[in-house]
Design a binder for these strands. Sequence first.
DNA 1: TACGGATACATTCAGTCTGTATGTAAATTT
DNA 2: AAATTTACATACAGACTGAATGTATCCGTA
Lengths: 193, 193
Amino acid sequence: MARSNRERTDATRTALLDAARRLFVEKGYAETATPDIVAAAGVTRGALYHHFPDKKTLFWAVVEREAGEVAADIEARSAEASSAREALLQGACAYFDAMAAPGRTRLLLKEAPAQTVVDSGNGEDPAESSLKVGLSHLLEGAALLPLLDPLTVLVSAAFERAAIAIDCGGNRKNYEAAIAALIDGLRPDELRR
Amino acid sequence: MARSNRERTDATRTALLDAARRLFVEKGYAETATPDIVAAAGVTRGALYHHFPDKKTLFWAVVEREAGEVAADIEARSAEASSAREALLQGACAYFDAMAAPGRTRLLLKEAPAQTVVDSGNGEDPAESSLKVGLSHLLEGAALLPLLDPLTVLVSAAFERAAIAIDCGGNRKNYEAAIAALIDGLRPDELRR
DNA sequence: TACGGATACATTCAGTCTGTATGTAAATTT
DNA sequence: AAATTTACATACAGACTGAATGTATCCGTA
């Protein structure tokens, strides 16, 4: 069976990414050895180190692929909402839906943060920046607007922790309600209730 | 120089804990090798594996010692507050003060979570349970009271993320204000402003 | 279409790390 | 004072990562 180089590369890379994803989700990054990954992918370590400079780079390739799928999932659901509040709540729902795909929470919210280097300001979480847009509309002209950046960071942390809690068996409805309560609390007084 | 066994053990254990803490903070758990730790502590790996069954256990001993110091720091500052709101804000300030000790944020909020096993419900974060008490007073008789547990989890996540952001050079005043805004948002309407 | 290089691996190897097993001197117990 | 336990130090085995090297296949070119 003759395959073009492009086909071979694509097949091998996705086999490695798929196998690595499975094992990273199952056992975590540190507990997953490259011999196990290549065995699961049906190739040798030579192939792995041909396509990726090291284990970390393979890991980040897995994470970025997954993050891209999450972004696509959410993008596809960017329905126009009637209000800033509705937009944020819809966004929350889409986010929780996207993170419900098996292994995503473990991969994106546990393993990936564990491997990020500590000091360097890590670049641009897309989920966080879209949250920031939503919050900026909610706070338009309000006294809290100068706190937009830190509030975005904190609410983003709440989102992520909610996703983790749901992934660990927590009641999704309750966490969605709690998120809604946090967001409603930030609304300017004149708009409440 | 004759030392009792107790003295020898204490000296060696604290030397190991101190050296390990320094290196774990500097380079993280995975990048810190036991040969480096024992070299920094002035002992051999035999001593390490005599006192701790493995590297992970040493790590958790470091983390628990640090967590104990944080708890003590905060405990010492448990001033009576005039209101539930004030108590929470004072608690936030005490928490940020405690986490300002060099390396604590990295150790307790980055390295430790990275090493926690995924599934098992990890037991009782003391900071979180005291936060829960504070929130329960704030929400006394309010419509949000049924959401106390999830709200505690989310607000706790916000606290931790704020500490991380401050540790990374973020403006503490801004994050304190953002935390205050989140908490104020949860207060029953009749108490606002 | 024959050839020279590039590509995509497979295999071997060196260095490092973890945990264990064994040896020993000092302290403690009897 | 002898026996035993404690607190280590040293030696060792297994595993893993990344680099070096070898090889078959593909691909552009003449």
